[in-house]
């Protein structure tokens, strides 16, 4: 199969988002390139989810622009996928959930079966293939969401706190899947508030606090010598989360 042209880099240019008269994303500018696993790190209510949705094109910025290799959002969504913090499973079997995503993305039915088997095996869900998806445990659902995203082979995968409600074993499984997807050449942009997780996964860290992007730094540098005092305090655990919380 010929590789389609890359939609990266993703460029955010002075992106602002107001919700209900409140500024929840403040003047964020950044460039995300193809290679690194980018972790959006920040306390609860920092605006991480909103930033992800802005990048993915699910919400439009109040001001500023989001462009993919120069193109506006709408044109390239087919090359992206997103796994939500609480993924929605369709009321059908595990395999049919993946088939649905493949059908929506226009993959011919003939090649779906093999693709489904492949991602179910990679995410350890093969024996659940014919089970109702809504009957899965939280961890299995999260893996199915990853399998569904993986199946459509996106260039860019957004992950919104994918392990927020998982136990350590489940977290580990999900992280391994994420790393495998990243190794396969997919750009990963993921939010987390978990410092340890960021250490394990990040190639670069985007530190977000109260809707402002404080820094975008290679992971090694961020964890040893953050440039901003806010990040420093977050690493020390003394940066108190935003009291006036934003959904």
């Amino acid at each position: 199969m010929m590789k389609p042209p890359s939609i990266l880099p993703l460029r955010l240019d002075r992106v602002v988002l107001d919700i209900g008269g409140k500024r929840v994303i403040k003047d964020v500018s950044a460039t995300l390139t193809a290679a690194p696993c980018s972790i959006v790190l920040g306390p609860n209510g920092a605006g991480k989810t909103l930033l992800l949705k802005l990048c993915h094109g699910l919400i439009a910025p109040t001001a500023g622009s989001v462009t993919w290799a120069g193109a506006p959002c709408g044109n390239v969504q087919h090359a992206q996928a997103m796994v939500f913090q609480q993924p929605v499973m369709l009321r059908r079997s595990v395999a049919a959930n993946i088939a649905y995503a493949l059908t929506v993305r226009g993959r011919p039915r003939a090649e779906q079966r093999a693709r489904i088997d492949d991602v179910l095996a990679r995410t350890g869900l093969r024996r659940f293939a014919e089970s109702p998806a809504r009957r899965l445990s939280v961890g299995e659902k999260q893996r199915l969401a990853l399998a569904r995203a993986w199946a459509i082979e996106p260039q860019v995968l957004f992950l919104d706190e994918p392990t927020a409600s998982l136990d350590p074993a489940g977290t580990r499984q999900v992280e391994e899947i994420i790393l495998a997807i990243h190794r396969g050449g997919t750009k990963v942009i993921m939010t987390t508030h978990d410092l340890q997780q960021a250490r394990r996964l990040a190639d670069e860290v985007m530190f977000l606090h109260r809707g402002r992007l404080y820094e975008q730094t290679p992971a090694a540098a961020f964890f040893t010598a953050p440039r901003t005092p806010e990040a420093q305090r977050f690493l020390e655990g003394t940066l108190f989360p935003n009291i006036r919380r934003v959904v």
């Binding site: 949705k53 699910l58 992206q80 996928a81 939500f84 929605v88 649905y100 995503a101 929506v104 993305r105």
Partner: peptide, 12 residues
């Protein structure tokens, strides 16, 4: 309300 983001993300 529940499915919007997921379906729009998939591109339905």
């Amino acid at each position: 309300e529940e499915y919007r983001d997921e379906l729009r993300s998939l591109g339905a």
